[in-house]
Structure formats: C-alpha cells, structure tokens
Amino acid sequence: MKILGLFNYWMVILLMLVGLYMVIASSNLVKKIVGLNLFQASVFILYISLGKILGGTAPIFLKNAPDTVYSNPLPHVLILTAIVVGVAMTSLGLALIIRIRKAYGTIEEDEILEIENKQQ
C-alpha cells in the first residue's frame, strides 16, 4: 500500500533520472536541451502531484457547493509560470546552439572540444 501510494513519486524519480542521464551523457547539444526538458517536466509532475487531494476538484470556485474539496491551487500557479519560463529558457539555449553551429560547424560537444584544443 505504501509503495502504491507513492507511485507518482517513483515515476517522477525515474523520469528525472532519464533526463539527468541525458543531460550528462549525451554529447549532442540539442539532446542535452531535450533532456533538460524531460527533467523539467518531471519536476512539474512532482509539484502537481503534491497539490492533488483525492476526491478533490479543480480549483475553480463553485457557487452552489460550499462543501467542495479543492485541490491546492498554489503549486499550480508556480508551475504555470515555470512552464512559460522553461520555454523561454529552451529557446535561448537553442539560439545559442545555432550560433555554436555557425561558429564551429558541429553541435557535438567532444568535436567542439577537439577544435578548441587544436586552436590552442
């Protein structure tokens, strides 16, 4: 029961690890950004899971039902803004990648390092 009750958090951990591994291990810069997105989404899922109350409903006020249980609206607000900032950050990263491609002709991290070493 305990394990089943924490199922969401297990999923969060697994997704987070996949994202983390992608960021560290892949040498392709676009893949790093994609991994960062996966990682980000797992954090969103963690927050939203925390805000859920079983049997609750969406936090939109119902006039004729004073006894309604609402889920916690605060995590929703935080994640809402985080998503938009996340896409702004992603676009900035991708713009940097395009510039790196223009400058080095590749987006593989180890090849960029090789070019750097040759120049020195």
Binding site: N37, H76, I79, I83, L94
Partner: peptide
C-alpha cells in the same frame, strides 16, 4: 491531477511551441 490551467499551458507551450522551436533549430543544425 485537477490542474486544468497547467494542463492547458503544457499542451499549448510544451506540445506546440517548444516542438516548433526544436524543429526550427534542427533545420539549421
């Protein structure tokens, strides 16, 4: 999980815009 606003945003931003941006980047790289 009852987070309708967040679902709305994620569908528009995550599934729509960021995919388009990644694809536009792939055109260049």
């Amino acid at each position: 999980m009852d987070a309708v606003d967040v679902a709305f945003t994620e569908a528009a931003v995550g599934a729509g815009i960021s995919t388009i941006l990644v694809l536009a980047t792939l055109l260049h790289v």
